[in-house]
Design a protein around this nucleic acid. Structure first.
Lengths: 243, 243
DNA sequence: CGCCAGGTTGATTTCGCTCAAGCAATGTGG
DNA sequence: CCACATTGCTTGAGCGAAATCAACCTGGCG
């Protein structure tokens, strides 16, 4: 850990991270408990937030930067499972299941992350049943998304999965240029994108070239320009609902 | 619906389905509410409990028989996602997420299934926060299992996934014979087993033959005899933790 | 008896993997 | 500042797993 990883208490969470989340049901006194116990820290790229197998100590709120959640496969390769952007929460699954972490969270771009210990969360959960109800809904939705993801992986081609990933990334790191085309910056290396799709980087390379030669999409470095996003994303919808 | 699908109220759930489940936290008065509102029914093989896209009306408790949870892939093929045995609950994910069903439940062997309407469940949840806490833990664990399943599908071979499935089925429909070998009855067709593994039935056929020629395992009809279960299951563990 | 669903088998193709080489951009130590 | 290593990415050749297509078997059943 470098010197930039300063530990400091902070009241930073109240306005930014509570509104519009499950924490919005907290009373002002509970918000006070929250803020008195939250600890914020800066992380450098490459720093580890938690490791697969660790006991879960609480919740992590990504305030800025980018965090990748990874798992090692049987051959020792890293598989990127999730990218956590500002506003995202990490570690609630093992916390609520009372299990250990099943994946590793690694900072991919200098980040500020706030931490709330699990004792405080359980205190808040016992004080305020509404918070539990919110978490319950959130977890059930995540379960649906996980099932969907599983089904997508076994039933769609790598190409369609890639188009879907572009559609998802678009919300996070895409912007529309004046001529109506969509531009997006891949936040991670192509190798990591490939691992998110469940393919090797070589296969991803070939996939990119294939799509590029069709004309709609242009790749240069980490920037992707999509001339006609509607048309491209329609291919994903068509693969899901082929009627 | 045939005449055997009689609708009848019943108090059947109290002893059998409550103990050892999340419902064990209910007070006796709450158990009364539960029992007054639960409706049990008999289903024939082939009957549909709910269909993908349906609004979720409540929870289903499988009392006897066998129910398959399926989804249609883009090419119109059925993928079997889950087998629900007596004691299993269906529909809690869409109920808690306040979403529609994302899969279809079809009875695969004559079954008795009890139903509790969602209003009652929400009433019980609001009366008893402990019930919510139990559901929260259950859902978070299911989320972990779903992630695990996803990871298994992308990182393990069909062969290893099949061995893992045998290991899971063993708990439900396996029994040890006098000479120490394990015997299990596949509850569904080979075609459906193949779909659970994410492969075609032809590929599954070849996989079975390959394993059979190695000698440890013998397949005849829906009966599988495993001479040395330890040795076979070790192959699964070795694939997961290859150190 | 013939039909037919479930299952098997073979031939061929497709998709993605492995291995290996090469290239461009970036970093680093002398 | 140059030589060299490193990292990320691409490309090609060959291979392997599973899909597809097609034929065929087999046992149950109307």
């Amino acid at each position: 850990m470098k010197s930039s990883c300063v530990i400091h208490k902070s009241r930073c969470l109240a306005p930014r991270s509570i509104n519009g989340t499950e924490w919005s049901v907290l009373s002002s006194e509970e918000i006070k408990i929250f803020n008195q116990n939250v600890v914020c820290r800066s992380y450098n790229s490459g720093d580890i937030v938690f490791i697969e197998g660790d006991i879960c100590k609480g919740l992590y709120f990504v305030e800025s930067g980018l965090v990748g959640v990874k798992k090692m496969d049987a051959d020792g390769r890293q598989v990127l499972l999730l990218l956590a952007n500002p506003g995202d929460t990490l570690g609630y699954r093992p916390l609520l299941a009372k299990e250990n972490h099943r994946a590793t969270a690694e900072v991919m771009r200098e980040a500020k992350i706030c931490f709330l210990p699990k004792d405080i969360i359980h205190l808040l959960l016992s004080r305020n049943p509404q918070l539990g109800a919110k978490f319950l809904q959130r977890t059930a939705r995540a379960l649906g998304a996980a099932d969907e993801r599983f089904f997508e992986m076994v039933s769609l081609t790598a190409r369609v999965r890639f188009i879907h990933l572009l559609k998802i990334l678009q919300e996070r790191c895409g912007y529309v240029v004046e001529d109506g085309s969509l531009c997006l910056e891949l936040p991670v290396t192509r190798c990591e994108i490939a691992s998110m799709l469940g393919i090797r980087s070589e296969s991803f390379s070939r996939l990119v070239r294939e799509i590029e030669t069709e004309g709609f999409v242009h790749f240069s470095g980490s920037r992707i320009t999509i001339a006609n996003p509607e048309l491209l994303f329609k291919e994903f919808d068509a693969a899901l609902y082929p009627i």
